[in-house]
């Protein structure tokens, strides 16, 4: 990536004005993945100095600042002790400790990366995203829409639920071949699958029919039908489907 100018604003309003007035500007969070892209950027706006690095719990809502590093999430007491450790588990095999000290949750969400180990869990947990201009938005809505000229501030997760994430990697810190996340709230189950290798998606039909253990085979069958699975250099669609079935069953059993 070629960067012509690099600014670290000291306020959100300054960051937003810069973003609005520069069509070719790019927001830098951690920057570790962005820097690998082949593109020319007229202005890099780095959010490092805006105080968006925090994890706080308020009335059973966990609020994670967009600039929070993945290693901080991995080792945070709420991430470890709530939701069966789902938030800690979702990040702990993304690169090594070193990389997780740079990579931020905000950058990972906004990149909407196909290989993301974070998005399936956040989708299953029905996370809310707080933006500077657009305000609060559900993660599924965010995944399906293009949001231009806005800044993600915070990820909000309801802790009044339970969750489990399972992923399969060929080596310890490789990108996942498949990532299955399941959460159970007062309305029922939410299942999301990522690295299929398409963008993580909620399996709506499958989530709806799952109520007790006897539905799990049927739910799995529907899931494999409603989401697309593809072959790439990492794995075949058949292999991904077989893994999904096994991981969903495992996740469900450990969850309930």
């Amino acid at each position: 990536m070629i960067i012509k100018d690099y600014i670290l604003p000291n306020s959100l309003s300054e960051a937003y004005e810069l973003l609005k007035n520069n069509k070719k500007a790019v927001i830098i969070a951690g920057g570790a993945y962005l820097r690998l892209q082949k593109r020319e950027v007229s202005l890099a706006i780095d959010l490092e100095n805006l105080g968006l690095d925090y994890i706080i719990e308020e009335n059973k809502l966990l609020k994670i600042g967009a600039m929070t590093k993945l290693r901080e999430i991995e080792t945070n007491e709420y991430a470890i002790n709530e939701l069966n450790g789902m938030l800690s588990n979702m990040v702990k095999q993304i690169g090594g400790v070193q990389l997780r000290n740079i990579v931020t949750i905000g950058g990972s969400v906004c990149g909407k990366y196909n290989f993301s180990d974070i998005l399936p869990s956040l989708i299953a947990l029905n996370a809310s995203l707080k933006f500077y201009k657009a305000g609060i938005m559900n993660i599924c809505e965010f995944m399906e829409n293009d949001l231009k000229s806005d800044i993600l501030l915070e990820i909000i997760i309801d802790l009044n639920q339970n969750g489990m994430v399972k992923y399969f990697k060929s080596t310890y810190k490789e990108y996942s071949l498949i990532n299955v996340a399941i959460a159970r709230n007062k309305n029922g189950f939410n299942i999301a699958v990522g690295a299929r290798p398409g963008k993580a998606k909620l399996a709506k039909l499958s989530s709806k029919i799952l109520t007790t253990e006897k539905d799990i085979d049927k739910a799995c069958e529907i899931l494999l039908d409603e989401l697309s699975f593809k072959t790439d250099f990492r794995a075949s669609d058949k292999y991904r489907k077989a893994l999904t079935k096994t991981l969903l069953l495992e996740a469900y059993k450990e969850l309930v």
Binding site: Y6, L8, I28, G30, G31, A32, R35, A44, D46, E48, R71, V97, Q98, L99, N101, I102
Partner: peptide
């Protein structure tokens, strides 16, 4: 960097002030 281990190849120097 401030006691945390990072791969310096992936860290923008401008962040370091």
């Amino acid at each position: 960097v401030d006691g945390k281990v990072i791969p310096s190849c992936s860290y923008f120097t401008m962040k370091i002030q």
